[in-house]
């Protein structure tokens, strides 16, 4: 794996240090199947296993937001053979924070929607860091209805800090836009598979996360509020975000335990940002399997199951 000008988190450094050693070995002319290089490669694998497991919830948040973590469009490029992007909500405009279009997945035609955070600073600004405005939610619903019309299954890739909390978004009906996604997604009779690929931030995430199968990447997070927001409200101190992250139970294993998601997709090479292609393959494999499972179910039964699935979530006394 190429070690370029990668941005790394503090706890990741042992992995990158070892990779530098391997790179140095390669430059010294050591063959990849020489004993020394093999030993180093073995150690790298062990180290990845060690460094990226048993992380604190706050470290998981850092990984989910990692600047090099693959975005929806990057995954789309890897997973699907073709992608034809559609734009606009037909009311106000096109929201670059949400993408979507027709795609093909190993011979199957599907509709893909997702939040797009952007790959570099300029792109991120354009895409408002994946924080959708009402237009984005309306576009996603429009495309999902289109998918239903042509009996295409839907894949939704969720990755957003949350819905955009701005004046314009409020004026154009942010609440209604999210609310009508939530209500109408229980009417779309096509199979919907949701993958939380990075940040599942609050209502803005949920608006694209109603589905028959909800999957979550190992190092993704899913929460009602950002740890910073939670810390600001509860402890009146944003610096307490790491504590808030633990309280919020936002990791993939927490969400699985709370029965909010169906399955965790393991990340290869420790974390998705270290192997975009390999991790896209991981997602693809699960998608193909889930699509085959859901394909045979008639629309009516699918909708009933979807309602039941979300009606079961919650824990209380009495």
């Amino acid at each position: 794996m190429a070690v370029g000008k990668k941005r790394k988190l503090e706890f990741e450094s042992p992995v990158y240090d070892l990779e530098e050693k391997i790179e140095a070995g390669r430059q010294r002319g050591l063959e990849p199947d020489s004993a020394e290089m093999k030993k180093l490669a073995g150690r790298l694998e062990e180290l990845e296993e060690k460094v990226y497991s048993g992380l604190s919830p706050w470290e998981e948040v850092q990984l989910a937001r990692h600047p090099d973590r693959p975005t929806a469009l990057q995954y789309i490029g890897e997973i699907f053979d073709e992608f034809l992007e559609f734009h606009g909500d037909r009311y106000f405009g096109d929201d670059p924070a949400v993408v979507g279009g027709l795609a093909s997945l190993g011979g199957r035609r599907v509709m893909v929607v997702g939040h797009e955070k952007g790959r570099n600073t300029r792109d991120r600004l354009k895409r408002n860091f994946g924080m959708a405005s009402p237009e984005g939610f309306r576009k996603s619903l429009r495309l999902m209805k289109l998918a239903e019309k042509f009996s295409l299954p839907i894949v939704s890739l969720v990755d957003t800090p949350g819905a955009y909390p701005g004046v314009g978004a409020e004026e154009r009906g942010q609440s209604v836009a999210i609310a009508s996604n939530l209500k109408n997604l229980f009417d779309i009779s096509s199979p919907i598979i949701v993958v939380i690929i990075g940040e599942g931030g609050s209502g803005g995430a949920l608006a694209l996360a109603i589905g028959d199968t909800v999957l979550m990447m190992e190092h993704a997070v899913y929460s009602v509020i950002s740890p910073e927001g939670c810390a600001a409200i509860l402890y009146k101190n944003k610096d307490k975000a790491p504590e808030a992250a633990s309280s919020l139970r936002l990791t993939s294993s927490d969400c699985l335990e709370l029965k909010v998601i169906d399955e965790v997709i393991r990340e290869k090479h420790g974390a998705a940002h270290r192997d975009q292609h390999g991790n896209a393959e991981q997602i693809k494999r699960v998608l193909v399997r889930k699509l085959s499972e859901l394909e045979g179910i008639p629309g009516e039964a699918l909708l009933k199951k979807r309602v039941d699935k979300f009606s079961r979530i919650g824990i209380f006394n009495g």
Binding site: F186, G203, L248, L250, D254, L258, V260, F310, I313, G314
Partner: peptide, 12 residues
């Protein structure tokens, strides 16, 4: 946390 978020789905 996440269980509250899911109540939006349940009520919808």
């Amino acid at each position: 946390s996440i269980l509250s978020l899911m109540q939006m789905a349940k009520t919808s």
